[in-house]
Amino acid sequence: MKAPAFDFTQAQSVPDAVALLADTARFTKPLAGGQSLGPMLNLRVAFPEHLIGVRQIEALRHAFIDPANGELVLGAAVRHAQIEDGLIPDVTRGLLAHVAANIAYRAVRNRGTVGGSLAHADPAADWVNTMPLLGARIVVAGPDGEREIDARTFMTGPFTTALDEPELLVAVRVPALSDAARWAYVKFCRKPGEFAEAVGGVLIDRPRAVGRLLIGATDGAPVVLEAPTELLAASSTDSQVAEHWTDDRLRAAINAAGIGHDPYVAQLHLTMARRAIVAALA
């Protein structure tokens, strides 16, 4: 079980990486932590001809709060373990660290990166579900500079994203939650570290007019349900927001996502969504 032959170039900077990725003569892919791509290479289900190492690009290793808007700018090469260990500024009242601590195994978290996981876009992975829940924006760099993509539209299907070639995912901008924000992120895995069979996420942050429920680990992009604006008024309560997500609405969303035909899968997603609601209000 050995990888097929490929070339490797260590990129020195983001422009360098973008330029290397622009080579259309060969099938070229970025390699970050390699924790998803590595297995695919060894199993010979991916056959890139040229891998561009981006893990060591200095600009991708930053994590800081943007003084302009208080957002967390999370460099694409920040590793899960760094988030787990609280080594990045937290604007999410612990959500990012909670999610990070339950990705795969520690040895994988030590190497796997936020950007790599997002770009890989496995529906069962955690950041592709967490970032839409948070309303984050994905920053990508191309030949003509950077652009931002709403995380809720970043993933376009299983293992596919809104990244255009030769764009490189460089950072995630995570908005700061208010002090009143309540969240939950629950997932069902057969074993710790295994890919989730269902993810439920809830974020209620009325001061920022956010009431969001996420159904993740679907067959494609996660389902994001936004609570009606009127429920997010100052006079309402978090419970009222939560009550909006009735079983009927959740089932309809599950069916709309195309995963309702399998009763077990549908039930798991319903259970996770309900438990996320309960946990967020707890």
Binding site: A3, F8, Q10, L31, G34, Q35, G38, P39, N42, G53, R55, A81, R106, A107, V108, N110, R111
Partner: peptide, 12 residues
Amino acid sequence: APARSCITYAID
């Protein structure tokens, strides 16, 4: 830090 040596390439 612990890491998987089977999915880490020596060149990286």
